[in-house]
């Protein structure tokens, strides 16, 4: 077997549905076949590669450039910013706000995606059984996504207002005390997480539901014949076969959640006093939250987030490969 196929990192995992079936590329006429496949693959990838270069090369370069120079508003307009090396990164890492922001980022991200995924999967399994109105209701679940974030964020802030919010009104009518959702340093992060979970559930529901659609019905029928109950069917069929889709959903969820700014900004502006400031919010505040745009530290924070996302990207590929091997 030529080096080419074995060294190429594979982005594929044969679904359990075809477990035991031969791999898609037939082996015999190895070298020729592989080369022509490579050319074909390149052909299929060409639009994407051109697209990536066209749309992202400059912004990516710009973000790194910004973070390595000491841009003031003046040098942003006139050019000629001083090269600062890793100075901006050092400033960010040694800032008093860094550790709390990092902690908030991890709490916000992991609680959000764990809850979004769990709720999304539960709903996807629930909606898998076609019942009256199921398609319409599933469509309705996407409605929150149609709202501009300024609207959904404001609505949540409205509902969670300490004094005239509907949530506290309900709590009080049950005899529970008022909670200062957005203005208590202990609750502000919880509040934005709740709103963010709400925003993320439709995304998880739709992707996981589509994933479920690709699991052959026969497997469930066979399992039912073997006497497996719904719980066992979920853990033995649904969950394992959904793994590739789950993996990508979680990874994308992570990437999107890491960079969330709008919801937090609209609801609490990262406050009170930094209690709900994540790295992304901090970056945004440096660049646009004050009267004086400070792009260099903002870009440095942005690049740190990028590194975090990359680390999880590695983890994803690693897990995927390990699974491929087994």
């Amino acid at each position: 077997m030529p080096v080419t196929t074995t060294s190429a990192p594979r982005l594929r995992k044969p679904g359990g549905a075809e477990a035991g079936l031969p791999a898609s590329a037939p082996r015999p006429p190895a070298r020729v076949r592989v080369r022509s496949t490579q050319w074909a693959a390149l052909g299929f990838l060409a639009p994407l590669i051109v697209y990536l270069l066209a749309c992202y090369a400059y912004p990516l370069y710009r973000n790194i450039d910004l973070s390595l120079h000491d841009y003031t508003v003046r040098s942003f307009v006139q050019g000629g910013a001083d090269f600062a090396g890793l100075e901006n990164y050092r400033d960010v890492l040694t800032d008093d706000g860094f550790l709390p922001a990092l902690r908030n980022t991890f709490l916000f991200t992991f609680v959000s995606i764990a809850a979004q995924y769990a709720i999304g999967l539960a709903l996807a399994v629930f909606f898998r059984n076609n019942f009256r109105l199921s398609a319409v209701l599933r469509g309705m679940f996407l409605v929150p996504w149609l709202l501009p974030l300024i609207v959904s964020g404001s609505t949540w802030a409205w509902m969670l207002n300490s004094d005239n919010g509907i949530v506290n009104t309900v709590l009080e009518s049950f005899g529970a005390g008022r909670i200062n959702w957005l203005t208590d340093p202990g609750w502000a992060l919880v509040s934005v997480i709740i709103a963010n979970i709400w925003l993320g559930v439709p995304f998880n529901l739709v992707i996981l539901y589509s994933g479920l659609q690709n699991i052959p019905e026969e497997l469930y029928e066979a399992a039912a014949l073997d006497g497996a109950n719904a719980w066992q069917q979920f853990w033995r069929i649904t969950f394992p076969l959904l793994r590739p889709v789950s993996g990508i959903t979680l990874l994308l969820g992570l990437v999107y959640t890491l960079k969330v700014v709008d919801v937090i900004w609209i609801m609490t502006t990262g406050g009170p006093g930094g209690a709900s400031t994540t790295l992304a919010v901090w970056s945004y505040r440096e660049a646009f939250g004050t009267g004086l745009p400070d792009f260099s530290p903002a870009a440095a924070i942005g690049n740190l987030l990028l590194l975090i996302a990359l680390a999880f990207g590695f983890l994803y590929l690693h897990l995927q490969r390990r699974q491929e091997r087994t």
Partner: peptide, 27 residues
């Protein structure tokens, strides 16, 4: 252009004091 920086520090202090995260003098 010093004002925006001072202002950011000021509103942060106001938020901390009002939310009880710090007392006014410390904030």
């Amino acid at each position: 252009t010093d004002y925006p920086k001072i202002s950011e520090a000021l509103w942060t202090a106001v938020q901390k004091a009002l939310s009880g995260a710090a007392d006014p003098a410390d904030a």
